[in-house]
Design a protein around this nucleic acid. Structure first.
Lengths: 214, 214
DNA sequence: CTCGGCTGAATGAATGATCATTCATTCATG
DNA sequence: CATGAATGAATGATCATTCATTCAGCCGAG
């Protein structure tokens, strides 16, 4: 038993087949969005993913772990999508109304174009199912955004607000619209997005930047 | 069997003992807030309420019905509390910054002073457990507020926004703060409330009213 | 005032259903 | 043939819900 025998003790570091893992997560997402976190049995996830029940446990140690993994993956998808949308608003963080639009619209559009993922996120966030580790992972993901935020505040390109107040004012309305949409209480039109964004600008931008452009 | 025999076919119209019914609902609220909608078994609700498991079913036909009843009751509590807080802002609907403060602060304070009830509401709203009937009941409860809103818009005391956008801008930030608080990510101080409210004013009040008072 | 029986709220052990999870077995692949 | 991913029936645990039984309080008769 030399040191060399310790090489790659586990052949596949994450899962066996990335496709299958993905199919499982996609099935879980759909079912949880449709039925709710409570009423989505693992057996149904397996059936929907086209695998046997036991297979789920080759990829995830438990249902809770699967949901937590899915949560982080959905967050990553959202971040990636927002980063792509923000291609225009470049580098240094030229906030102002246009920069905020790039950020806000990216977040809003993702939530409205991915209703299942959006519903899943909102359910997880208010359900005591996320572990401390997952919440820690989320915090780490947001570190860069936090840095940009502080920079923008320091440069006077955002009103001087605590980060959490900023997030509540910027993201809170989006999540609220998403929830009303999920409840079938409204449809999200471009007009709704525009007028909500206009309100958000007034709440977090310095006055001189509010009216910069439609 | 005359018509007279039909008198009072059921002695107690709602439940048997209002106290016991209340104890059950209070227990359900605490447990669901602490453990989450999924992990709150009826047996635990019964134990916590100091009654036997079977007793729950003398007061509610099912767990789902119990949760829906609790949801409507919590909404009524919140409305009552907000109405009491708004004693100052009287009659006609003198909105402006002061009137909005009466409304917004009432809503916000209730959510921060009743963390269990607040958490319960947020869980229900994103979990597909509310029936159409319950949602209809909620809509009926909000009818008066809707009328006041339309009046205020017509009188130019609120910016001309669709109702849902208004609600997203006013309530969305509160719910987001409540959720971050529930996740242990922040503490709600008076400063946080003040600066959030300031942002909300900018987003929904006409400019002339934004700076009326702190 | 007292006693015996009656009512129906309350009980909690039992039931049946549903799940998450396991593991002996299968089978495709190298 | 050997490996190990995949299977899916079986397991054990947990629940929501039921129902036969209990018993506290009430009422009419004596």
């Amino acid at each position: 038993m030399t040191d060399a025998t310790i090489d790659r003790p586990v052949p596949a570091p994450i899962g066996f087949s990335a496709d299958k893992r993905q199919a499982i997560l996609a099935a879980a997402l759909r079912l949880i969005a449709r039925l709710g976190l409570h009423a989505a049995p693992m057996s149904a996830v397996a059936r929907y993913a086209g695998v046997a029940a036991g297979t789920l446990y080759l990829y995830f140690p438990s249902k809770e772990a699967m949901i937590n993994a899915l949560y982080l993956q959905v967050l990553e998808d959202r971040d990636r999508s927002m980063a792509a949308d923000a291609e225009g608003a470049r580098k240094d963080g030229a906030i102002g109304r246009a920069g905020l639009w790039a950020f806000w619209n990216g977040l809003a559009r993702w939530h409205f174009e991915h209703p299942e993922a959006s519903s899943f996120l909102l359910q997880c966030q208010s359900s005591a199912i996320l572990t401390d580790e997952t919440r820690e992972g989320e915090r780490r993901m947001n570190a860069e955004g936090l840095r940009n935020f502080e920079q923008a505040v320091a440069a006077g390109r955002l009103r001087d607000l605590p980060l959490q107040v900023f997030w509540a004012l910027v993201a809170g309305p989006i999540f609220q619209l998403a929830q009303m949409r999920d409840a079938g209480e409204m449809e999200i039109t471009d007009d709704v997005l525009r007028s909500t964004f206009d309100g958000v600008c007034r709440s977090v931008l310095p006055e001189r930047d509010v009216a910069t452009s439609p």
